[in-house]
């Protein structure tokens, strides 16, 4: 088994700053393979949300680096996943406290995939997305939004985000990874423009991380060319 990974983020053509955060990591520990990809979209109406998304991805990256000391000799896959969930909960609390006690305007979404050998675990809050391109394009996560009529128009409003409550409501799912799977993570700036045709038109199997990053960049460019105004971020994990 081999995993190739890459990620790209872009401020886009209209926004003043990039409030997205993105990270991907891969590590071979003995005969075990771990990979992690995480996207976090700062809430646009909160002026300092780049702090939240940066905290999220930095915290996750730091967690991944620290867990390598203990996996698999000390902590098995289940303990690793439990530890990740506890870490995400704590990061949520820090962002919540920053928002409520320090009056910082921060909040973000979270879509994270952790692959340990042939199993994947997804943690998801908000409306960023994780897709799996297998025989077709599967959307693995559900957007946590509500539909509301505002001024006669139907709008989607974010129902859940990191930092909303002290206790995080996160959806966690797991599954089996197949060879030739491709996982695509994206913030809503990317995902709102995707369908099976344009995704398969851009994505193809490649053999190196650099080429995966090129795929991400191509996807970003396609979305920006379609007129997307939001920050755009995407990550790809390929299973070979």
């Amino acid at each position: 088994m081999n995993l190739t990974i890459g990620c790209v983020t872009d401020k886009g053509n209209y926004r003043e700053k990039n409030q997205d955060g993105i990270i991907c990591r891969r590590c071979q520990v003995g005969e075990h393979l771990l990979a992690l990809a995480c996207v976090s979209d700062g809430i646009g109406s909160f002026s300092q949300s780049e702090i939240a998304s940066a905290m999220m991805v930095s915290g996750v990256a730091s967690w991944f680096d620290s867990i390598l000391k203990y996996f698999p000799a000390v902590m098995g896959a289940k303990e690793v996943v439990d530890d990740l969930e506890a870490t995400l909960q704590e990061l949520n609390e820090l962002i919540y406290e920053g928002r409520t006690e320090r009056n910082l305007e921060i909040g973000c979404t979270l879509s994270l995939i952790l692959i340990i050998d042939w199993e994947y675990h997804i943690f998801h809050v908000g409306d960023s997305r994780i897709y799996c391109l297998r025989d077709t394009l599967f959307q693995l996560t559900q957007d946590e939004v509500i539909l509301k009529q505002i001024n006669g128009k139907e709008k989607k409003l974010l129902a859940n985000y990191i930092g909303k409550n002290r206790q995080m409501h996160v959806s966690h799912q797991c599954g089996h990874v197949n060879r030739a799977d491709m996982f695509l993570l994206g913030t809503d700036g990317v995902c709102s423009n995707l369908n099976y045709e344009n995704v398969t038109g851009v994505l193809s199997f490649v053999s190196s991380d650099e080429e995966v990053e090129v795929l991400c960049r191509n996807l970003i460019n396609m979305v920006l060319a379609m007129g997307e105004r939001d920050n755009v971020s995407c990550a790809i994990v390929q299973v070979m």
Binding site: D127, I146, K155, K156, L157, D188
Partner: peptide
């Protein structure tokens, strides 16, 4: 809900 997030390009 804090943010109206519009969908669709």
């Amino acid at each position: 809900a804090p943010v109206p997030k519009t969908f669709g390009k």
